[in-house]
Write a protein that binds this DNA or RNA. Structure first.
Lengths: 210, 210
DNA sequence: TAGATTGTTAATCGATTAACAATC
DNA sequence: TAGATTGTTAATCGATTAACAATC
């Protein structure tokens, strides 16, 4: 069904396809051609067909692609048909914001616990959870079938916690700390470096100045 | 000093160089070679030299690169020597988290105002600011020399607000809404699609499963 | 001067686009 | 069947890596 190694750049386009197909679904569209989709998404039709073909033939010659079918298939490729249990480590502003963000649940991502190391925060209520002490992380992960850890803490803490997560054999880490984590290849790390993103914006703003 | 058009992929590596050079500075290191830096950053020395050379010669043969000088130069390229005034539009969990995040100020990004359209939120205190009504955005941007707008609101709202921002001739938009904004090329949009990022993580977790 | 390391050119690799035969 | 549009191969483009002459 799926090529051995899909390139990073193809993977990174899948969520965007998924979003557009969701919109098309909502519009009630039944079928779409790569040409039509290319106009909407502002990419070439060639790229769309190449991308989809990495995963097998989703379309039909002379017809195009069935919107509902394609939406479901891309969802499956992205693993959105599976349930994911998360813990948030770091109950500061960002950690709390993510804990309260309901939309992830729609896609099967459930926040099961939230942790912090600060005495003043431990025990406080976030959404329907009490913030737990970070020392409890390892046992919590084992007992609650957690596969994703979200790191929303300062970089020193993140590096330490990453070691614990490696021992727990977590599946993936969603890393918001401004540090590159050193973990084995078996654990996938997806970085969200907000300050990097803001710097890129800053560069672009000044790029064409004199 | 700078090539006409630096490719996206080079730009996206600059903040990471900047971060590593900051660490080296903190360690008190005075000079570093591309070979040494390549080991630390896990990229090729060739790439490092190519990247830096897009912006002119920062190094010295036989010596390497001066850490402080290189740090400052990359900072300047990223526009971090300039002051940026931001408004946050959408005072929900994420908007408030970003408003409270102090580290951006270190780099010259100052949050000057925060806005929302919900009656229940307008007037409440976030950090040292009162949340203002979104209807005031246009005049506030003009009066306060704002160059960046941070969009932390649902996609319908983001699309509407983007039109207002275009009229205000804002320099850049940091977009957290799950929608691709339609703005002229003169306004640069940097997207942070958190759900896309989480989906990529999900894909990677399941990639090697059977 | 000799050693080290850059800046830069050339070679390789991979990703995108174009083209078109296959086929619904 | 004729028209449309995919799946796929070939051509192009761009990015990465290797190599080495320039030079500090």
């Amino acid at each position: 069904m799926q090529d051995k190694n899909i390139s990073q750049v193809v993977i990174s386009r899948l969520p965007r396809y998924f979003r557009y197909l969701g919109d098309l679904k909502d519009e009630g569209l039944e079928r779409i051609s790569s040409g039509e989709l290319s106009k909407r998404m502002n990419v070439t039709a060639s790229q769309i067909r190449q991308d989809f073909n990495h995963f097998g033939g989703f379309g039909q010659q002379g017809y195009g692609y069935n919107v509902n079918y394609l939406y479901d298939e891309i969802g499956k490729i992205l693993g959105l048909d599976k349930r994911h249990n998360l813990v948030i480590i770091g109950a500061g502003n960002l950690g709390q914001a993510l804990a309260n963000y309901m939309n992830f649940e729609k896609r099967g991502f459930f926040v099961k616990g939230i942790f912090d190391c600060k005495e003043s925060i431990i025990g406080t209520q976030v959404r329907d959870m009490k913030v737990k002490d970070t020392s409890e992380i390892a046992s919590f992960i084992k007992d609650n079938n957690i596969d994703i850890a979200v790191l929303t803490l300062p970089k020193q803490g993140a590096t330490e916690i990453a070691k614990v997560l490696v021992e727990c054999n977590i599946s993936g880490i969603w890393n918001f700390a401004h540090v590159d984590l050193d973990v084995p290849d078996s654990i996938y790390v997806e970085n969200v470096h907000l300050s990097d993103s803001l710097m890129k914006l800053s560069f672009k703003i000044h790029e064409n100045e004199e």
